[in-house]
């Protein structure tokens, strides 16, 4: 049985420790640089597809993201001075949004792609996003949101960024179920871009980061 099948088998019953152990054993027999590309990303991709198509439960998706978080945290511990670090991304759920699964998945994908993630959690005020980004030197704020009503709170983050004249230095990435259903909402709430899935998030962050480093407006 291949490693992905073994992992899927573990998340079936919420076996977080079992999943972590399988990956740790796999890592001993494979090059360190393969962990993200060959293992974690395909694993999260498979979980994301199964979740979106209703083939696995929220509990199983949650277990998968926790396994990946555990593995990535261990990796980060071991390479604190890693020169491959691409920078810090601030991530959180918008004010009044409490649906953190998507944020956790994006966070895992970003970490697996050598981004340092400052995860602010659920229900984050607009000022807190921007303060954290300024403090961490982050060029991208990634905001997760599930529902249409709470999407309107993203506008507040846009306003704070604009009021402080940070629009060329800090880009606003938005994501969540509502943006897949209503793509026009991205610009309506002042977003600089979105990704259709957690797996696509690193690509979006890189592109927005690059714009911000050049000091360009969208």
């Amino acid at each position: 049985m291949d490693i992905l099948h073994l992992l899927m088998d573990k998340i079936k019953n919420g076996d977080r420790d079992g999943g972590f152990t399988i990956i740790e054993e796999w890592k001993n027999e494979h090059p360190q640089e393969d962990v993200s590309l060959v293992l974690l990303e395909p694993f999260l991709l498979k979980v994301g597809i199964l979740w979106q198509s209703g083939q696995i439960s929220l509990a199983q998706s949650y277990t998968a993201t926790k396994i990946v978080e555990d593995v990535v945290d261990r990796l980060i511990e071991r390479r604190a001075d890693d020169a491959n670090n691409k920078g810090t991304v601030v991530i959180g759920n918008v004010e009044e949004d409490f649906h953190g699964l998507g944020r956790r998945m994006v966070s895992s994908f970003l970490k697996a792609n050598n981004w340092e993630v400052r995860n602010l959690g659920n229900d984050v005020a607009a000022e807190d996003f921007v303060d954290a980004a300024v403090e961490a030197g982050a060029h991208v704020i990634a905001v997760s949101n599930m529902m249409y009503t709470t999407a309107q709170n993203i506008i507040k983050i846009r306003h704070v960024i604009d009021e402080r004249e940070l629009g060329s230095k800090i880009k606003l990435a938005v994501g969540g179920a509502v943006f897949r259903l209503r793509p026009e909402l991205v610009s309506e709430v002042g977003g600089d871009g979105t990704a259709i899935s957690a797996m696509e998030a690193p690509k979006l962050i890189e592109s927005l980061w690059s714009l911000a480093e050049r000091g360009e407006w969208q």
């Binding site: 079936k12 019953n13 919420g14 209703g54 439960s57 929220l58 509990a59 199983q60």
Partner: peptide, 8 residues
Amino acid sequence: STTVTQEM
């Protein structure tokens, strides 16, 4: 089944 598993 959208939320929980058989084991739970």
